[in-house]
């Protein structure tokens, strides 16, 4: 007892001294992130809180709102357009995940030693990423044109009569996924390339010495070592896909005329529905409820992904 009693103040003093340094360091840390943090709070957090509040209100066309409790949410659950938009968005998101293995394969090909013109390929893949989504959508709108589009002209050359890709309910969503994957592959590819170049060379040398083929090396070394990168990409792309708007907005025909697209029932996304309610029919309270529901959906799906990562992500 006495020993401990005697040694305690010493240890406490020591600990206190040791702790003070990190505390001032933490303060400095907070000071450094304060500008960003403040910006986040004012421009992101506050609007989110406001939107959450507005989702319980009904708005007049020129402002002014009344509290309506859960009305917007009950209406949301019974609205067939919401169900449809969520289904379309989830399908788009799921199909869009194809972009991840594709990006890994292209990254592996571009990562090969001694590949000629690697800069050209990398630029070609990355170009869609730095192009404005609206420009991309306009371009693809023309490529997909049923009568005059390049896609169908190429198909006609091999004797296939192509459909009206973005006006046909059977093809529209897939046509959209192709554009989505095409425009995001460059970004994913760059991240994967960085991931690959961080894998220690010794692993490959050792495997080669043990007689592993390049394909075996790819599956046994590259893929597992890339899994943290793949996890990051999948989180980011799922969130991005769930918020899909600009591509659909431009490709289906902007504004209200989008509804005259025969494939609209397959193309309408959650954010598009939000846009229509908020800015076309002036139903802002309901629009707020729609985005809050989307926020919950994104949170849940991200949580599920974090849970699942234990099963397939290998950290070194």
């Amino acid at each position: 007892m006495t020993t401990t009693a005697r040694s305690r103040p010493v240890r406490a003093a020591h600990a206190a001294k040791g702790r003070r340094r990190p505390r001032t360091e933490a303060l400095w840390g907070y000071a450094f992130i304060a500008p960003t943090g403040l910006g986040l709070a004012i421009f992101y957090l506050w609007p989110v809180l406001q939107t959450a509040y507005f989702s319980f209100t009904e708005w007049g066309a020129f402002g002014g709102h009344t509290w309506t409790g859960l009305d917007n949410y009950t209406r949301l659950l019974g609205d067939p357009e919401v169900g449809r938009a969520v289904l379309n968005t989830l399908t788009y998101t799921a199909l869009g995940l194809v972009g991840i293995p594709l990006a890994i394969v292209f990254a592996a090909l571009l990562n090969r030693q001694g590949l000629r013109g690697v800069g050209v390929y990398r630029t070609a893949f990355f170009l869609p990423v730095v192009t404005m989504p609206v420009a991309v959508a306009m371009l693809w709108r023309w490529l997909y044109n049923g009568d005059y589009g390049l896609v169908n002209q190429l198909l006609a050359a091999v004797g296939v009569d192509g459909p009206n890709w973005i006006a046909d309910p059977a093809t529209a969503l897939y046509a959209l996924v192709v554009v989505g994957v095409w425009s995001s592959i460059g970004y994913n590819l760059i991240i994967f390339l960085a991931g690959m170049q961080a894998i220690p060379k010794e692993l490959y040398e050792a495997a080669a010495m043990d007689g592993a083929s390049r394909v075996t090396q790819f599956f046994r070394i590259t893929l597992p070592m890339l899994s943290p990168t793949a996890f990051f990409i999948s989180i980011v792309s799922v969130i991005g896909s769930l918020q899909l708007f600009d591509l659909v907005f431009v490709m289906t025909g902007s504004g209200q005329s989008a509804r005259a697209n025969p494939a609209y029932a397959r193309l309408q996304t959650v954010v598009q529905l939000f846009y229509e309610r908020a800015f076309v029919t002036d139903d802002r309270g309901y629009a707020a409820a729609i985005v809050i529901a989307l926020l919950v959906l994104i949170a849940v799906l991200t949580m599920v992904q974090f849970r699942l990562q234990r099963k397939w992500v290998h950290y070194v």
Binding site: G146, D147, P163, N164, I166, A167, G253, A260, A263
Partner: peptide, 8 residues
Amino acid sequence: DLKTMTDT
């Protein structure tokens, strides 16, 4: 048809 008029 409507598909054609949606495209063009």
